[in-house]
Nucleic acid binder design. Structure first.
Length: 752
RNA sequence: GCACGCCUAGCUCAGUUGGUUAGAGCAUCGCAUUUACACUGCGAGGGUCAGGGGUUCGAAUCCCUUGGCGUGCACCA
């Protein structure tokens, strides 16, 4: 019986209905897959959806990641594996707070005009809305993820796992509270990790001031009020007559002062005059010298970037406003030696707002990255977190697809420093620590050089929020006001999600063995821009907590750029909206265009022409099916018969294509798999073989096996293409064979 | 400064461990016209694989070098 199909494939007629059928089938949940039901469970295949941030709509970069992950998941599923693609959303602490604060700003308010509770609730609602939108977008991309396990990083079950890790690390001595200089963003009022700052080259003035008998250089006159140490290199012959510890009386900005000579090798003799004064509270290098030499540390600038009383008449002024006034005053006092107008240097900026980072001394929680430790439970000696991660690469327990990124990863690991995990923001997981109230109040928190635990014992980790009495003095306690760096929780994602899933199941009396079954995961697919932020942390934390790698392979995709290789940005107007593209050309066209000509990790130029071309490909496939369907039913669709030379050639090429596609998918060469499918389908199958069948079909002897071969090849092509173009292939499949059998769970082709 | 990568057709890019005549999409040009599909088919032009040197029977691919472009990390007052 022949079928009449419409002349061209109209994606809008099929996509949403097909997704609904997939979802209703229950096969996104691997526990429902036929093999598992039949008591023949395939090997699990797990992949975690990398956390779309709950603060922004999907962009084309998400579309790429989702496509790659869906291809891998569908491929695994069709090969009989229990494929679990676990979707989730990250609260994305700082990122979301920044976005939400901008929104508040537009509405003429700010978080500082709200209570913390009000802010948190408003932010929660904002995130829920966006989360819903993202999830709809993910569905439109055809993502075959298991919504029954959908999870949010602020779900209590996740928070519990995160807290347990914190407690264990604290018990193991890997976490400490450091009262050190950190990267402080005066706009966002929080400390930031080095990764969360960026550098920008600027040409500014460099000032040379007379400091007693010396000339000192500085780019930041506004920090110089409290300077009382003058530092030079011990081998600098120019200053040999000054000895360590010598005191000098001299005139400075706000009057006479006493300076102490310090000799330290941290000074670069070649730079400036080889003499500097130090400002330990607002400069990392100066702080390091002061800490090492036990020098006094005095704050000059407050957390909002205004001068403190030590600045005398300048108190309360913003540092940038004060700078020129201070220079004028020094000039009036005859203390300006000269000024270099063309001083090129790099300034450190907040990666979000681009404001200058103001180094400040703020107590923060840190994780030791390079210290080996004794596991408090097992009493076993274990290597440092860094060393565990590097060992994972050495043993190939974790492999990063494309060597280039492995090198970058190792380089970063070699230079890693302790990770500050506390943030002074409100949107996030609170740090589960209590302090003695009395000691906190008697010692103003965040006062430079003081640690709040001095009065009454140590801070106490309280993950169940039960402690209300200070163990030292018996008085009240105060909860740590800070939240975790988002990456501390998302860094635990691969195991935390599965542990949390078990906790949820156990709570309703279901068998809970997700962690046992689906961990470690097989693949982590994400953009290279979060290799350090996320991938590195997952590897370290997973080995720490589970003794296992979080995933076997890391597949890093590149940035999607426009056709001229420009970064997509709203201001350039070159942003491709994935949902708009889907409306116009269909999901399959977008997916295939994204995958088609890119290697792992390389940036992807995406032009509308390419997407359009792939829509043509979907239509070509549709018309191949239409041609074949019109020929009527075959005797069998399972056995090909190579009787004519054309048959032989096409069946050989099909076998070669099956092998190539399978092999390329196994090795993450998705673009090569896509290219060979495109080429085979269009130029071998359609252009050559189908043209040849027009003659073969005229002959009644060859008609039957020709129809048989056409179906056989079409079926295989549909299966091979399904991971890449799930909608059009499923649409054709159901037009041919009805809606009962889903292509999604058909077995993967094998060669005949 | 430390590290990494890239340079292949007009444009955007593929090219796995070295192995036929170096490929695709788009663009260009010619031909075909009620065809499963114009969202088409057939065909053509277009490359010193950045330059130079080396290893090899053989190099876009490996090594050295020069030039150009880019990225990550660090960062000096």
């Amino acid at each position: 019986m022949s079928k009449d199909l419409p002349k061209s494939y109209n994606h809008a007629d099929y996509e949403s209905a097909i997704y609904t059928r997939w979802e209703a089938s229950g096969f996104f949940d691997p526990d429902n897959l036929p093999a598992a039901e039949a008591g023949l469970p395939g090997e699990p295949f797990t992949i975690m959806l990398p956390l779309p941030n709950a603060n922004a709509p999907l962009h084309v970069g998400h579309a790429l990641g989702l496509t790659v992950q869906d291809i891998l998941t569908r491929f695994a599923r069709m090969r009989g594996r229990r494929a679990l693609w676990l979707p989730g959303t990250d609260h994305a602490g700082f990122e979301t707070q920044v976005v939400f604060e901008k929104k508040l700003e537009k509405e003429g308010t700010s978080r500082f005009k709200m209570t913390r509770e009000e802010f948190y609730k408003a932010c929660w609602n904002f995130v829920q809305e966006n989360k819903h939108l993202s999830e709809q977008g993910i569905r439109r991309l055809g993502a075959s993820c298991d919504w029954s396990r959908n999870i949010f990083s602020l779900d209590p079950e996740i928070v519990k796992v995160v807290y347990e890790t914190f407690k264990k690390m604290h018990a193991d001595g890997l976490i400490y509270r450091g009262n050190r200089i950190c990267n402080w963003c005066p706009k966002h009022q929080t400390g930031l990790a080095d990764l969360e700052t960026k550098y920008e080259e600027r040409i500014e003035q460099f000032y040379y001031f007379k400091y007693g008998p010396f000339v000192i250089g500085t780019s930041r006159p506004e920090t110089k009020f409290g300077d009382k140490y003058v530092v030079m290199h011990p081998d600098d012959k120019r200053y040999a007559k000054y000895k360590e510890g010598d005191k000098l009386n001299l005139e400075w900005i706000n009057g006479p002062t006493v300076a102490t000579i310090i000799k330290d090798k941290a000074v670069d003799m070649e730079f400036g005059t080889g003499v500097m004064t130090i400002t330990p509270a607002h400069d990392a290098v100066d702080f390091e010298i002061a800490e090492r030499r036990k020098l006094d540390i005095e704050e000059v600038i407050d957390k909002r970037g205004k001068l403190l009383p030590i600045a005398g008449e300048f108190v309360g002024q913003k540092i940038m406003d004060a700078r020129s006034l201070i220079v004028e005053k020094l000039r009036a006092k005859g203390l300006v030696d000269h000024i270099d107008d063309k001083y090129t240097h790099n300034v450190q900026l907040c990666y979000k707002c681009g404001n200058l980072i103001e180094p400040q001394i703020v107590p923060q929680w840190y994780i030791k990255m390079t210290a080996s430790f004794t596991d408090n439970e097992t009493k076993q000696e274990r290597p440092s977190l860094r060393d565990m991660a590097v060992a994972a690469l050495d043993t190939k327990e974790v492999e990063i697809v494309t060597e280039k990124f492995e090198k970058i990863f190792r380089h970063w690991m070699a230079n890693i420093r302790d990770w500050p995990i506390s943030r002074q923001i409100w949107w996030g997981i609170p740090i589960p620590v209590k302090y003695c109230k009395q000691s906190l109040e008697s010692l103003p928190r965040r006062q430079a050089g003081k640690v709040e635990s001095q009065a009454c014992g140590q801070p106490v980790v309280d993950i169940e929020n039960k402690i209300d009495t200070c163990v030292g003095c018996g008085g009240g306690v105060i909860a740590d006001p800070d939240t975790f760096d988002t990456w501390f929780s998302s860094g635990q994602w691969p195991y935390a999600t599965l542990m949390a899933s078990d906790a949820k199941k156990a709570a309703v009396g279901q068998p809970a063995n997700d962690f046992a079954t689906y961990f470690p995961t097989q693949v982590m697919e994400t953009g290279w821009d979060i290799l350090f932020f996320w991938v590195a942390r997952m590897v370290m934390l997973s080995y720490y907590r589970t003794n296992k790698p979080p995933f076997a392979k890391v597949f890093l995709h590149g940035l999607v750029r426009d056709k001229d290789r420009q970064k997509m940005s709203k201001s350039k107007g070159n942003v491709i909206d994935p949902l708009g593209v889907i409306d116009m050309y269909g999901t399959d066209a977008l997916r295939f265009a994204l995958i088609f000509s890119t290697a792992a990790g390389n940036d992807i130029p995406l032009a509308e022409d390419k997407i359009k071309g792939m829509k043509h490909f979907a239509n070509k496939l549709w018309n191949i099916a239409r041609y074949i369907a019109a020929l009527g039913e075959p005797l069998t669709t399972a056995v090909p018969e190579a009787k004519t030379p054309a048959d032989q050639i096409i069946l050989e090429k099909l076998n070669a294509t099956i092998i190539a596609v399978t092999n390329n998918l196994e090795n993450f060469r998705l673009h090569e798999a896509a290219q060979s499918l495109y080429d085979f389908t269009w130029h071998e199958f359609a252009d050559i073989y189908i043209e040849a069948t027009k003659t073969q079909l005229l002959n009644s002897e060859s008609k039957n096996f020709t129809i048989q071969n056409l179906y056989y090849i079409l079926n295989n092509v549909l299966k091979l293409l399904h991971p890449f173009m799930p909608f059009v292939t499923e649409a054709i499949w159901s037009e041919l064979y009805g809606q009962e059998k889903l292509l999604m769970v058909e077995p993967w082709p094998v060669t005949k």
